[in-house]
Write a protein that binds this DNA or RNA. Structure first.
Lengths: 309, 309
DNA sequence: TTGATTATACTCAACTAGAGCATAATAGGG
DNA sequence: CCCTATTATGCTCTAGTTGAGTATAATCAA
């Protein structure tokens, strides 16, 4: 155990920031709360008055958006000097959180604050097939990046990594690799954030950039959520009190960025007793009316339950 | 975005500590590195000179143990005032990590530094059946705790939570709930750490206590590792370069605290191509000699691989 | 009344996971 | 050398899960 008193001077040159990836899914649109014209995630300093990190986050997010936060989960803490834009005489520790909220808040959040998260990651939305940007831009760019490696061994390692991430060479798309894909594009110098420090690539991959690490944090949040919905019933934090099974499915698909087999999705939800009928039917957009369901909150007490794989 | 400059004063009253849950498994024993006569986890301040949190941790752990850290993973960051033992005029942010190392280091670590982690959680080892402490001490104590609740509804909620955590009422043991179990015992005032602030219970549950939050952090690390080995090949970080399948199985069982079906374990490992034969056989303790295997490091590049469920 | 659209019930085959049986190869004691 | 204990290793069987498809039911709009 180091003596703390000797190090007060050094330790005091440290600050802490809380950064939030705040997600909602109003009618099947995956949106995230942003500030500064969608160039940053909402963040605020951790202050002495806060009871804990989590309550500190709750305080200012609820104050800022006017809506209560349902689910909160810590994402990652980092303090890399190279990554942060500040000078190196002091360090800021950034603690990021994933938060889910039920509705898209309107008051206290200027229009345009909530953004479809695929604006930042156009290559992540495979609900309507693989986005053209992958085969048109990303694949050739990563091929060039791989070929630019010195040794043959390194070349093939690079390409294998790219192929795993993006599902090239028959490998198939894995929606959970959102973070790995962003990091790969960053290392290959294909996103704007990387081009700021490294030499810029000839052609950047489309997708809205953000300040500092924020896009990377968003990628972390998306990846976490995409894995989490498979084994924990967290989607319901994003749903209205009553919903149809198709609405639920659309929400899951929006987050995962892939479509699922309708009948199998229903089977899964029902056999896990995640929902119960409200007894009412929906006034539908078209087609046969659907039963309305509500989340069975009791499942949260029956802990080791599964989600919506 | 808050103006940072206005808050310098407040922000500077913050320090950061790195805390390590460092795990090894020499011949099937799950051990963790401790200091101060096994009352604390190794920790050190995060300093300005450190390149990043992770490298800061690596620096002083390797310096302190003389062994390189294989796998490192962030666990959790917290700054709750109630939990930490320090005065409230300043805050320390604790960032905890899980680290895996191959061998039990001997130099630079005094004897007794590595402790079997079941000394801290005697109720977590189900390799030889459910430990008697559960039915003898924990179950009746939690029954009393549940009954002590005011409303009938709260009583049944408490008991349901206890039953889920410890597998009462036919529910079966779930080894991944290590953290939830510790937190339950803490809330029920049944561990020493809780008795320091709350009123002490009549009889505490056996198990070595630690300073501050350290036992809780250890529980977090164990729980994380128990879930991780099921879908990522991290056990191999704890194994020697060559090993028999039984040795591998013993390591997994040591971490998970439960036994597995031998033949099915072999089938799983082999069909996933996690290992390859070295061509050599083991000079065994008894019985038919076993083939020696080594980890196929290439699987780390074939990313979305499974582990040792 | 027909077609489009969505809801909902079933079926089927492939695969996975849990459990057990059988046989092989070694050591040690008589 | 044979018997027994012990561990290694191969194989089977069954139940459950998963992916994909077929069939039928309600509704609306033209």
């Amino acid at each position: 155990m180091a003596k703390h008193s000797e190090r007060q001077q050094e330790r005091h040159a440290i600050g802490a920031d809380l950064i939030a990836v705040l997600v909602a899914a109003p009618n099947g649109n995956p949106v995230v709360l942003t500030i500064k014209d969608a160039t940053a995630l909402p963040s605020g300093p951790f202050e002495l008055g806060h009871r804990s990190l989590q309550s500190g986050l709750r305080d200012w997010v609820e104050q800022q958006t006017g809506h209560p936060l349902g689910y909160i989960e810590q994402l990652y803490t980092f303090a890399d000097r190279d990554r942060s834009g500040e000078d190196s005489s002091r360090r800021v520790i950034s603690i990021s959180y994933l938060g889910l909220t039920r509705e898209e808040p309107s008051r206290a959040t200027p229009p345009g604050s909530w953004r479809n998260w695929y604006e930042f990651f156009p290559w992540e939305d495979h609900r309507y097939g693989a986005p053209p940007v992958i085969v048109d831009v990303i694949e050739p760019a990563l091929r060039r990046w791989a070929d630019a490696a010195g040794h043959e061994e390194k070349r093939s390692k690079r390409w294998q990594r790219a192929a795993v991430c993006f599902g090239f060479d028959e490998r198939g798309w894995n929606e959970e690799l959102t973070l790995q894909r962003y990091e790969l594009l960053y290392e290959a110098g294909l996103v704007e954030e990387a081009a700021r420090t490294k030499e810029p690539a000839v052609q950047l991959v489309p997708g809205r950039a953000m300040d500092g690490d924020h896009r990377r944090i968003l990628a972390t949040g998306i990846a976490r959520l995409r894995t989490k919905i498979k084994y924990r019933p967290v989607v319901f934090e994003l749903m209205p009190p009553a919903f149809t099974l198709l609405q639920l499915q659309r929400a899951v698909e929006a987050l995962a960025g892939v479509t699922v087999h309708k009948q199998n999705f229903r089977r899964l939800i029902e056999q896990q007793d995640l929902v119960e009928e409200t007894g009412q039917m929906s006034s539908e957009t078209g087609g046969r009316p659907a039963k309305l369901f509500r989340f069975r909150h009791a499942v949260l007490d029956e802990l080791p339950v599964a989600g919506t794989k």
